[in-house]
Design a protein around this nucleic acid. Structure first.
Length: 428
RNA sequence: GUGACCGUAGCUCAGGCGGUUAGAGCGCCAGGUUGUGGCCCUGGAGGUCGGGGGUUCAAGUCCCCUCGGUCACCCCA
């Protein structure tokens, strides 16, 4: 170890040309481009919110009892304010929606985002302390088509990037009115089994019993087989909504699996909940998740519920999944032209040409350390440049540069005057 | 927060039960071609063997501590 400082545990530098796809800048550009394109096509507009938020927004929005709030937040105090590095973006976006009265804008709001989030967990494959999410929200309608639309954009992003082996699981959590009834029934059923449950589940039994449903412990799953189903407690509207969602998904050919045990970790979800899964991201299986969260707005201070539905997806997990599926990922950003100069006078002239090429829109490069021609050629080759322009004393005299095709090896003399145009045309 | 495993050149890794100048491949630099890349050949630079302590005549190798990483649990993106 030479440097005294290095990246903080669970964070990483992205480097151009890095051997690992997960931290290669070019790969990030690739998926970011895909996300922007699909979102744009679906009529979503990008929203950017600060990385720093009031701790209270997250605590009240996501829920005190969630793992995120109870043990995974990076918070700090300064003056009288308690700050948090955002652990997710849905609450901040709802905050922004309310703060800027976006309900006054025409129609429903379709917003998408892309950005860094922070959670103070022990890092492992597919889970990091600084990680990146992208996602989308439709705010302002209860229509189940909005739920379907959210699922559709989400699926489209993965499809556009070539990731096809995914599983969509959906469920409904019922309304704010009926959920307590089910919750009670579930507790009543589980209470006699209390001794068989794990410590965590026992704790949840009193605090957040629905979460027990998605347990992985075999003994608990067995008990749950006979447990009352949420579906039996649904109110008429939730049931209708759920049926409509399934109908719409089918109508646009999005396959899904119904999973009555699917419960999401954040408190703000009502009705629709869904998760997109993929194998081979280490022990993690969730690529993305989301659902309807009409109660988030009142939880963070709005006078009444604001109907909203959205998804959040992990960018690291997306890359890991793409890599695992053997999808081609960009390795480097090749140059169009590489300029080679021999001698000081040629060096200065070359610099002028390079700038001219760049202004004309080409990706043009040159070495600044005055190395041998062989060395410069090697660099041109490494840069993946299709064309090389050679400028030496002879060329300065004749005012003609040598243009070399790195694929065929052919080279021709081109007058200085027409150099930029010549190369621009070649690269069309 | 808990557990397991791993730290030897820029990267990936060799270094039988401790023994003398710590190696390879790739990468980097230079030369072979006095102005021409990719292939090939030759040479070179680059290592407090993560750090500290201990055992020993002798430690990269054994023991302890510590730091860092990876993976897993919990949970989630």
């Amino acid at each position: 170890m030479k440097s005294t400082f290095q990246t903080i545990e669970g964070t990483s530098d992205l480097l151009p040309g890095a051997p690992k796809a997960l931290v290669r800048t070019e790969v990030w550009h690739h998926i970011e481009r895909g996300i922007h394109e699909i979102m744009r096509r679906h009529g979503f507009s990008e929203i950017r919110t600060p990385i720093l938020e009031h701790t209270g927004l997250i605590a009240r929005g996501i829920g005190q009892l969630t793992d995120i709030v109870s043990k995974e937040m990076y918070t700090f105090e300064r003056g009288n304010t308690n700050y948090v590095l955002r652990p997710e973006l849905t609450a901040p976006i709802m905050r922004s929606y309310l703060q800027h009265h976006l309900e006054q804008q025409p129609g429903v709001q379709r917003l998408y985002y892309l950005g860094a989030c922070f959670r103070a967990e022990r890092p492992q494959k597919g889970r990091y302390r600084q990680f990146h999410q992208f996602g989308a929200e439709i705010i302002g309608t209860e229509d189940p088509r909005a739920d379907a639309e959210i699922i559709a954009v989400m699926m489209e992003v993965y499809r556009a990037l070539g990731l096809l082996e995914t599983r969509l699981r959906i469920n409904t959590l019922g309304s704010a009115e009926t959920r307590p009834q089910y919750r009670e029934a579930l507790v009543r059923y589980l209470e006699p089994h209390r001794e068989t449950l794990t410590g965590v589940s026992q704790d949840r039994l009193s605090r957040n019993p629905l979460r027990i449903l998605d347990t992985k412990v075999e003994a608990e799953r067995k008990i749950l087989k006979e447990a009352p189903r949420l579906y039996a407690y649904l109110d008429e509207e939730s049931r209708r909504n759920y049926e409509a969602l399934k109908r719409v998904l089918a109508s646009i050919a999005i396959p899904y699996l119904e999973d009555p045990m699917l419960v999401r970790g954040l408190d703000y979800y009502t009705r629709t909940a869904f998760e997109l899964e993929h194998d081979g991201i280490g022990a993690q299986s969730a690529l993305a998740g989301g659902g309807r969260y009409d109660l988030l707005a009142p939880a963070i201070g709005a006078k009444k519920p604001v109907p909203a539905v959205g998804f959040a997806a992990g960018m690291e997990r997306l890359i890991l999944a793409m890599e695992g599926s053997g999808l081609p990922l960009p390795e480097s950003d090749p140059f169009d032209v590489w300029m080679i100069a021999l001698g000081d006078a040629a060096g200065e002239k070359a610099f002028i040409f390079v700038q001219s090429l760049r202004r004309a829109g080409l990706r043009a490069g040159l070495e600044l350390t005055g190395r041998s021609m062989k060395a410069q050629m090697r660099l041109a080759n490494r840069a993946g440049s299709r064309w090389v322009v050679i400028l030496g004393e002879k060329e300065l005299e004749t005012e003609q540069a040598i243009v070399k095709d790195m694929v065929t090896g052919e080279q021709i003399a081109v007058p200085f005057m027409g150099l930029t145009q010549n190369l621009t045309e070649k690269l069309k």
